[in-house]
Design a protein around this nucleic acid. Sequence first.
RNA 1: GUGGGUGUAGCUCAGGGGUUAGAGCACCUGGUUGUGGCCCAGGAGGCCGCCGGUUCAAAUCCGGUCACCCACCCCA
Length: 414
Amino acid sequence: MEKIKTIRGVRDICYPRSSVWDKIEKICSSVLEGYAYRRIHIPVIEFTSLFSRSIGEETDIVSKEMYAFKDRKGRDIALRPEGTAGVVRAVIENNLLQGSSREKLYYSGPMFRYERPQEGRYRQFYQIGCEVFGSRQPETDAETAAAALEIARKCGAGGLDLRVNSVGCDECRPPYRRKVADFLAENSGELCEDCMRRKDTNTLRVLDCKKNKCRSVFKNIPVLKESLCSPCAEYYSDYRSLLEALGCSFTEDTGLVRGLDYYTGPVFELEADKGGVIAAGGRYDGLVKKLGGPDIPACGWAFGLERLESASDITASRLPAVYIMLMPGGDAGLCRSAAAALRKSGVSVEENYEDISPGKKLKDADRKGAGWALFVGEEETVKGFYSLKNLMTGEQRKVPGDELEKVSREFACE
RNA sequence: GUGGGUGUAGCUCAGGGGUUAGAGCACCUGGUUGUGGCCCAGGAGGCCGCCGGUUCAAAUCCGGUCACCCACCCCA
């Protein structure tokens, strides 16, 4: 029979990676719950229109990267390409903003984009994100960025670079976009191929071009920061001061433009020395209203789990930490009670009652990376002790049955 | 969507028209049925990614296709 394989750009997450992911997710939720974000679980499938309306019809994500299809009744359905749209929909649909002026939510799970896979990029990928609704204060923007930074640090990410910018609001961005378009039209002869295309499809993206040729042309391009309306400029300036006050060092990047249409005001990208851009987000004040809700401001961000993993230095848990093996003439009941006692102390335990040689069991323990082996054979059963062997050093000692829980803290289980 | 690279054992890779396709590591068995790693002896494991073409003969040459990797585009 022919083997069935995974489809392109998706993969199984097996141990030890699965264990690392669990730890990262735990770090994320504990940091976010420290900021009083509450978890929300939203569907993986939604009406396609949710995404086209929020992310933008003309964006790459919607126009060519969505897994979109018709269901059995002919409705247009899509696998979510990102999390924010669904959370906003859920907030509106569940009236989460009634009575309370603010709501802080976080989510995690798989997202889907039909892209060509490469390093740190998959067709099914995982994001962990958060959203704050009902606050239009720079403190909130700064706080969310600070939380992202805290998560990255707690995951051991190195070489962090928080880059910030403001993309302006509906008042100041359209005029600015026209200024840039005019500038590009005047200098079109000197642009690279990509920028020629971008100037029509995604005008502000040209600011992000890395080619030297374009960079030198862009030395005189209008800068968004100088075109911001005064409320936006003031907001952005407060935001930066607050980041400083929170001890978040950052760099300003006037070329930083998000690819999703809904952003307004401050945006950021968090880059690490490994994993590239591991998180990004910003303010999106018009989106709730645009999706049929009240006119409520909001901001948020998302981490790419695969990228956060690359940046992190987290290692997998030892599973098992202790490997209990029944030996000839031993009492299985003693194995079971030892296992129960250790598990009660939070230790990961595997028991092996197979009728095979101790050497094989030990080899299995070794291969699984267990830190300790615990033997129960005839002598242990008769005299009432456990033989405990440190598999890293090879040392072995006798532990009285009632002292097992006492030594359990030695079994590093993290 | 564009460009480049690579597909041979579980893994990393050699071989480049001509008999039974190799190595290292990993795996299995035994030496050692109360002790893993080291050592020794033996063993198993491949339609040489897939389809087609050229040829007396293809893992090897040609075409196509699929997959993976890298970069671009774009994005987390």
